[in-house]
């Protein structure tokens, strides 16, 4: 399936994956980030159950230097 992460199309096996599986795949464990799926924030506590599906648009953000 195809999903859009930070504006870039990515191909994944299967029809859906959990937010946790995505985090593992992207090697984001232990890092500070937040995920928005189709405009809605995904609460960290629910990553095990929340699923990402074909065509979803994700924004994954972190904190960077800024004024």
């Amino acid at each position: 399936m195809k999903i859009i992460i930070n504006g870039i199309e990515k191909e994944f096996d299967g029809n859906s994956l959990t937010a946790n599986e995505l985090v593992n795949h992207l090697q984001l464990e232990g890092k500070r980030f937040a995920i928005e799926r189709n405009g809605e924030i995904l609460p960290k506590g629910l990553f095990a159950e929340l699923t990402i599906n074909e065509g979803d648009r994700l924004e994954i953000v972190g904190a960077v230097g800024g004024g």
């Binding site: 992460i5 930070n6 504006g7 870039i8 990515k10 992207l26 090697q27 984001l28 890092k31 500070r32 980030f33 924004e59 994954i60 953000v61 972190g62 904190a63 960077v64 230097g65 800024g66 004024g67």
Partner: peptide, 20 residues
């Protein structure tokens, strides 16, 4: 300290240091 919120660089080196 102020920080900005920006897209994470997906696919970058997982061990790259971060501001935090």
């Amino acid at each position: 300290v102020t920080v900005a919120i920006r897209r994470t660089n997906i696919g970058q080196d997982a061990n790259e240091p971060s501001l935090l």
